[in-house]
């Protein structure tokens, strides 16, 4: 579904991504891991067209991304920080995004029901807690039945109950054939969801393969230790 070729991004003097090449197949679930400032969010934002690559190309379903915007109809994105116009209510923001994505006709309200978000619908966004905003954020990403879900630190800021509800939803959508990319810097947290692991360090891909391959190749018991052994080089 996604093909990235020699992607490079510089911010001033800083290389955020260096020659990143990878492919993500349709229907796969990819766990993008790496320490802080390793380029995870930059990579995600390049796919969304929010960051313009310095070099290289990204293809989505064979279409090269080059300032076009219609391809984003296929994507549901849950950013790391959720921020909305302060004076709008939850209901208004949901309706607004629906209104802006008028080509989608079938909506997925499952997450809104599970989070019991209807009771917050009349509240203004500035009066909501960080966790509730994050829930709104998640609901908007899933609302349009997108083929590709990009979730940047999806469980950060959520309580354990909501976090497991969200994980269940991710697994369900994966079983429905959706392509999913998600990130986290807390390795153990989302290990259960991962199939493919892409490990980024200082803007470069250090490992790309299945989770079993990673654990076998490093001879460690779990993902966290396997990644740690790559980072320390033994």
């Amino acid at each position: 579904m996604i093909k990235i070729e020699n992607l490079r991004k510089r911010f001033g003097w800083l290389d955020a991504l260096i020659n990143v090449s990878m492919e993500i197949e349709s229907g796969s679930i990819t766990y993008l891991v790496g320490p802080n400032a390793s380029g995870k969010t930059t990579l995600i934002k390049s796919i969304l067209g929010l960051v313009k690559p310095t070099n290289g190309a990204i293809f989505l379903d064979g279409e090269r991304l080059n300032g076009n915007f219609t391809y984003r109809e296929k994507i549901g994105y849950m950013p790391q920080i959720a921020s909305f116009p302060e004076n709008l209510t939850v209901e208004e923001i949901v309706n607004m995004i629906k209104n802006l994505r008028e080509n989608t006709k079938t909506y997925d309200y499952e997450l809104i029901d599970k989070f019991n978000l209807q009771k917050e619908f009349k509240k203004r966004l500035k009066n909501l807690s960080g966790g509730t905003r994050q829930k709104v954020n998640a609901c908007i990403a899933f609302l349009f039945n997108p083929q590709l879900l990009i979730l940047d630190e999806p469980t950060a800021g959520l309580d354990p109950v909501s976090s497991s509800l969200l994980k269940d939803k991710i697994i369900k959508e994966h079983n429905n054939g959706k392509t999913i990319i998600f990130t986290s810097h807390i390795l153990s947290e989302l290990e259960e969801l991962a199939e493919q692991v892409v490990f980024l360090l200082e803007g470069q891909i250090r490992f790309n393969g299945t989770i079993n391959k990673l654990i076998n190749s490093t001879e460690k018991q779990n993902l966290e230790r396997a990644i740690a052994s790559i980072m320390t080089g033994n």
């Binding site: 969304l48 067209g49 929010l50 915007f69 219609t70 391809y71 984003r72 109809e73 994507i75 994105y77 950013p79 920080i81 959720a82 921020s83 909305f84 116009p85 995004i97 802006l100 994505r101 080509n103 908007i140």
Partner: peptide
């Protein structure tokens, strides 16, 4: 102040 909101809108199929 609306930077994150702008990001939210730009991740929808909308021209900059």
């Amino acid at each position: 102040n609306n930077k994150d909101y702008i990001i939210l809108i730009l991740s929808q199929p909308i021209k900059r």
